[in-house]
């Protein structure tokens, strides 16, 4: 196999990995916030429900969750699956799993906000929605960026779990080439791809962190 062919195959896998990564963040970051708010809600039922959800998501392997999300509709409900669902099952499972981790990070951030910020805003007449969106959330985001960065980096590496339901992302491609070509080169190339990916993500997160450093 020519090196260029290998790179283009790995590139295709990379596109899948990047799509999984991007879409997971796109869905799990807002979902995590909703879960965090439900977790802190005054409604006891909602609170216990989200507590169970978070503990299940964090207490079981992501690979198992992938299998459940993908094969669950068939085995539990008898719905025949279409292959186009594979990719979406990955996105659903990843988003729902990461939302649980993000929810706890958000919650920690929100609970760390001093009561004085709420009181100052209330006295000034801000509505509860305004208080959350204008006063609390921006400060929470600054506080939780380092923890979010950790999860985001973990997510890059977790994308390789997608192959447990046959979504061929980069690492799977690297393995397949390694076994057909009897070579380690594809692993090395995949390693470089991952490193560059991580490097870009770390750079972006660092830039965000710096941008938020205009205040303390």
């Amino acid at each position: 196999m020519r090196f260029s062919v290998m790179l283009s195959k790995l590139g295709e896998g990379m596109v899948t990995s990047v799509l999984i990564f991007t879409l997971t963040l796109l869905f799990s970051l807002p979902l995590g916030l909703i879960v965090a708010l439900a977790r802190m809600s005054k409604n006891g039922l909602l609170r216990s429900f989200t507590r169970i959800y978070i503990s299940v998501m964090r207490g079981t392997p992501l690979m198992l969750q992938l299998l459940v999300v993908y094969f669950g509709p068939y085995y539990l409900l008898g719905i025949p699956l279409s292959s186009g669902y594979r990719f979406w099952a990955v996105i659903i499972a990843f988003s729902v799993n990461y939302a649980a981790y993000f929810a706890e990070i958000y919650r920690g951030g929100i609970e760390s906000m001093p009561a004085g910020q709420y009181e100052a805003a209330r006295v000034l007449g801000y509505s509860e929605t305004q208080i959350f969106l204008k006063i609390i959330l921006p400060q929470v985001i600054k506080r939780i960026i380092p923890s979010i960065t950790n999860e985001v980096i973990t997510l890059i590496k977790d994308t390789s779990l997608a192959f447990s339901i046959a979504v061929t992302e980069m690492f799977t491609v690297a393995k397949a080439i390694a076994s057909s070509e009897k070579t380690m080169v594809s692993y090395a190339a995949a390693g470089v791809f991952y490193y560059v990916f991580n490097f870009i993500v770390a750079f972006v997160m660092e830039t965000i962190e710096k941008k938020l450093n205009y205040y303390r």
């Binding site: 004085g116 100052a120 006295v123 000034l124 600054k142």
Partner: peptide, 20 residues
Amino acid sequence: LREIKSKFGLVFQNFNLFPH
């Protein structure tokens, strides 16, 4: 109450300015 809240102001011991 929202109308009434603009009739008074409160200055806090710890200022409670919005840091951002």
